[in-house]
């Protein structure tokens, strides 16, 4: 059981405008028209494949950025 409610300090909430960036790597991989094509090829990989693998980097970049900007100090 929990004790009496303490007021939440502002930092306690996870709210931050930076969080909206997280939508980029959620939406980007779902727009198939972006990458559902063969050309241009990169190192022999059709666009369908290299672009989706590249989106992994977008995901990593975004979550890293959001983490760094919202980190508690």
């Amino acid at each position: 059981m929990t004790g009496p409610e303490r007021p939440d300090t502002p930092r306690a909430a996870d709210k931050s405008p930076w969080n909206w960036l997280l939508f980029i790597p959620i939406v980007l991989p779902l727009v198939t028209v972006w990458y559902n094509a063969d050309s241009p090829r990169l190192l022999g990989f059709p666009r369908f494949y290299w672009m989706q693998l590249a989106i992994i980097a977008v995901g990593v970049g975004t979550t890293t950025l959001v983490y760094q900007m919202t980190k508690r100090r």
């Binding site: 997280l22 980029i24 959620i26 991989p29 989106i55 977008v58 995901g59 979550t63």
Partner: peptide
């Protein structure tokens, strides 16, 4: 290849 977008979306989604 859906496994790739699937495992990209997941982390920002549950962050």
């Amino acid at each position: 290849f859906f496994a790739v977008p699937y495992t990209v979306i997941i982390y920002p989604l549950v962050f």
